[in-house]
Amino acid sequence: MRALIEPILLAVVLTNFAVLGISRVTACVRMLAVQGALLGVLSIAVERPLSVHSVALGTGTLIVKALVLPWFLRWAMRETSVRREVEPVIGYMGSLLLGAVAAGLSFGVANRLPAVGSGQDAPVGLLVPVALVTLLCGLLVLITRSKAVTQVVGYLMLENGVYLFGLTLVERISFLVEVGVLLDVFVAVFIMGIVVFHINREFDSISAENLVELRES
């Protein structure tokens, strides 16, 4: 199982870049589902002796992040005819370049941080930089894209980054807490999805750019 970890982590980085470079919103959501699935498998793979705890958590992650949330996001945007992201604040090439810079930065920072875990957990070393890349790419999507759905995608990527970092904790925090975290993310996206649905109906478009009524005059 442990041999799988590095390829999976690299695939996670690739999904990040894919979201940064893709203009079709539906494709972004699909990439997010792929990332969720990778995370689910990963959380089972990092645990040395397979335990009920890690399998349950991995399966839960898989179901929530790879199936339920993407399906729900698709439901929320089904009624829009617009499937394409409007031109983002920073272009796709620009976003990809920034993503690459973020990746370089993450690996640089992670090298300078004190080591997590003991020597035998070598692949864990790659977890921290990949977690940081995912977090930064999520932030980038959140800031530069104007569609509400894409912003939810950015938020979920950011949350995935935090989740990846949580996997570095050799001894997991606790089952109760992890379930709570997963549940909270689920409900957060659920509520966001409902709001996206309403934005969609109210403004005939899911662009958050329309949300400019509340300002200091």
Binding site: A148, F165, G166, V181, A188, I199, E202, E213, L214
Partner: peptide
């Protein structure tokens, strides 16, 4: 359930969720 409250709740959700994700990273 009007436009203004929709905008308010969206801003609140996005900013708070990002903030709270940072707090979780802090906990980890």
């Amino acid at each position: 359930h009007d436009r203004r409250s929709l905008e308010a709740v969206w801003k609140y959700l996005v900013l708070s969720s990002v903030g709270i994700a940072f707090a979780l990273l802090g906990v980890f």
